[in-house]
Each structure stands twice: as C-alpha cells, then as structure tokens.
Simulated scan of single mutants.
Amino acid sequence: MSKAAYMDWYKAGSHAVRSACEQGVAAASKAERSFSDTDAKALAADGKALLEQHEAAFVGFLNDIGEQPNGFVDQIMKGIGEGVALSLEAAEEPQIVDVALLTGEQTGLHYFIAAYGAQGAAAEALGMPAHAERLRQMIGECYALDRRYTEVAKASVNRAAAA
C-alpha cells in the first residue's frame, strides 16, 4: 500500500469515526432521557459530553489534513443503534430498558476503542504523532467511561433487573 493510499484510508476513517461520534452523541442524549437509574442517567450525560469532545477532535484531525467534515454516515455505529432499538423493543419494564440502554452504550464505547486504535496506528505510521497521542488519550477516556458503566451495571442496573 502506498503512503497516499494509506492517507486516503485515514481520511475516510476519520470521516467515519467523526460520524460515529455524532451518532453516539445522539444515542447518549436519548439514553440520558430514557434511563430510570439516576447513576446511569448521569453516565449517559458524561458520555454525551465526552463524545462531543471526541467529535471536535476528529473535525480538527480532518482540518489538519485538508478535509472538511462531510455527510458520511458510519454504518457500523448505525448498526449498533439499530440493534439497541431492537433490544429496547423487547424491554417491557423500566429496569430492562436500563439494561438494554447500558448494553448499547457500552457496545458503542467498545466500537470507539477499536476505531480510535486503528486511526491512532495509522496516524503514527503516517507521521502524525499529535493525532496518535490524542487518539490514545481518547481510548483511555472510553475505557474509563466503560469501567464506570460496568460499576453501575453491577451495583444497581443488573440487580434491579434481576429483582
């Protein structure tokens, strides 16, 4: 693969992950309104704020490489959203809605971890250490939020659903 082709891949990936962040912000907003568990509701608000920062970072990355955000819609995140919607349809009680929403939030975070990792490796190889470093930070932020979701799941959401 030539460096130009790899840069084209990085550009396309940056557009895709920026779109995924945008979709994640919308999903976190909906989750924040829908959670009955107050701790999960607060985490969704934190997730929304985090993804707004990450989306802004990708807009900056795109600007750095001479690109403007486009209307691309990330199909992986779209699929995650559709899967969560189906899961919510099956949830008949507020506690089960919380489980479905929490699972969806964490699934999205895991996608971001993988996508940011791929973009970071490409940025490093393409000689963009500032992008790579920021992406490593973003991965750490996603891991930290994921751990917080797991703690809330164990402490309250899963217990309430199983009661």
Rank of each mutant, 00 (worst) to 15 (best):
G24V: 02
A27H: 12
S29H: 14
K30A: 15
A31S: 06
E32C: 10
R33W: 08
D37Q: 04
A40T: 02
A40N: 00
A40F: 06
L43K: 03
L43M: 08
A45H: 04
G47K: 01
G47L: 08
A49L: 04
E52R: 11
H54P: 02
E55A: 14
A56C: 03
F58M: 09
N63I: 07
N63P: 07
N63G: 13
E67R: 03
E67S: 06
Q68I: 11
N70T: 03
V73W: 05
Q75M: 09
G79H: 12
G79K: 08
G81T: 15
E82F: 14
E82Y: 12
V84D: 06
L86P: 04
L88A: 09
P94K: 01
I96D: 10
D98L: 00
A100D: 05
L102D: 04
L102V: 05
L102I: 04
E105H: 09
T107Y: 14
L109D: 09
Y111P: 09
F112R: 08
A115W: 02
Q119P: 06
A122R: 04
A123K: 02
L126P: 02
G127W: 05
P129K: 05
Y143M: 10
A144Y: 00
L145K: 01
R147D: 12
R147F: 10
Y149P: 00
T150C: 13
K154H: 11
